[in-house]
Design a binder for these strands. Structure first.
Lengths: 240, 240
DNA sequence: CAGTGGTCTAGACCACGGA
DNA sequence: CCGTGGTCTAGACCACTGA
């Protein structure tokens, strides 16, 4: 299937909401009406609405209708609820991204990393260390460990443009889910040397384990953000 | 309905996963099998599995089965993907929580707050300022603004136990969704005075807008976390 | 009371993975 | 090839909202 029907509905409604055709607190047409308009069953419409709800665009109100709760974000933000590569986030926020590769080496997972990440000790991985500059400011230091069984080789060019598009477009890896932790840590010597910390002695650290469509955890990464460039945003649902 | 059928399935599978009956990378029984076991349709099983996937417990692998990707978190964490009150998070992590009310006053939304929060300027609200101690350590300073139309009065007792249970159990407010932003800021004088910052000059700030079941944004809150007690965890899905 | 979303069923066909 | 999950349909009944 080129594209699922519910996904087309998501895209139509999302762009209408983002363009302001439905304002904050407006109500969408009823599920029954949307089903008729899109020529599909109510269940398919409901699946689309659930996706929009999970991303913070709408909220269903029983007995009344689905309400738009989307509000334009004023400043640049990274996604908490979804998976987005840094180049994708930079493009969305219209920020210039430049990446400098600091090191790239084959190695194996040692004990401390194994405990932090969940990767099995001894597994062969590629370790990539990079500095990311947003609009010219050095704001993110990240390290990724990628399974060599999934990513046998990397070049400086791939590393400095986008590992994710190489994974998805060239290797055919489908990134499905990620498990993330956000903490705040004291800045290390390297942080102070490389990042624009503005006299703040700490960094925001985002650690992430990433899974592909076969359920394999193929990457563990650790991004150290200078506070100035760190703003994560997401929506959450009260789940049973 | 006391409890939806899919929700029962979620609870059974979740506790089985948490208890280790299914280990990391194990496969759950097929959807067809689960439907037979629980005496329901496959769609209902799928809804339960989708909920578990959104919380990072399982991941479906087409043609193969649903795989468990849950890994026990070693340290105490707060939820990023869900909505959880601090008392709930403290109980889940077996941490002792004590709350000190610093101030409680009726006021109205001013212009700067309105721009930050999305609440309309001039709206009557209750402003609550609190210090939270985890295992005796002062780690979180939070301020909430609650619509007086939803929460007309609050007492010190409610504020120092749980505003959320008062909202949900007494007032019948159903919390449905929240929109959140996480940033790292320089510590203010008050942060330094009240929080256990361990010489770190910054705090993690979680700002949150909360919506009830009628789609009304009834609360805006701002929690300033000492780095030592700050660890947020969540799972994310790569969405179309 | 009519219309809305919430839940659930019992089917169907498809794409994919592994034996 | 068969069994898996992915999508979709056309119904049904319920709980809730608002006029």
């Amino acid at each position: 299937m080129a594209q699922a029907k519910y996904d087309q509905i998501v895209q139509v409604l999302r762009s209408q909401i983002e363009e302001g055709r439905y304002a904050f607190r407006d109500r969408l047409p009823s599920e029954h009406t949307l089903a008729a308009e899109f020529g599909c069953s109510r269940n398919t419409v409901r699946k689309a609405l659930a996706l929009l709800a999970s991303r913070g665009y709408v909220q269903a109100v029983q007995g009344s209708g689905s309400q738009v709760i989307y509000q334009r974000r004023p400043t640049s933000t990274f996604l908490l609820g979804g998976i987005e590569s840094l180049p994708e986030a930079a493009a969305r926020n219209e920020v210039d991204l430049r990446t400098v590769m600091l090191s790239l080496e084959p190695t194996t997972v040692d004990q401390p990393l194994s405990e932090r990440s969940g990767l099995k000790a001894g597994t062969p991985v590629l370790r990539v260390h990079r500095l990311r500059l947003l609009d010219g400011r050095p704001l993110i230091l990240d390290t990724s460990w990628l399974l060599t069984s999934v990513v046998p080789v990397l070049t400086r060019e791939v590393v400095e443009t986008s590992i994710y598009s190489y994974l998805e477009d060239v290797l055919g890896v489908r990134v499905v889910s990620a498990s993330r932790t956000v903490t705040v840590e004291r800045a290390t010597q390297e942080d102070r040397a490389r990042l624009d910390l503005e006299d703040m002695g700490c960094v925001a650290v985002v650690s992430s384990a990433t899974f592909d469509s076969s359920g394999l955890m193929f990457e563990y990464s650790c991004s150290r953000h200078a506070p100035a460039g760190f703003e994560f945003h997401g929506s959450a649902l009260r789940l049973p």
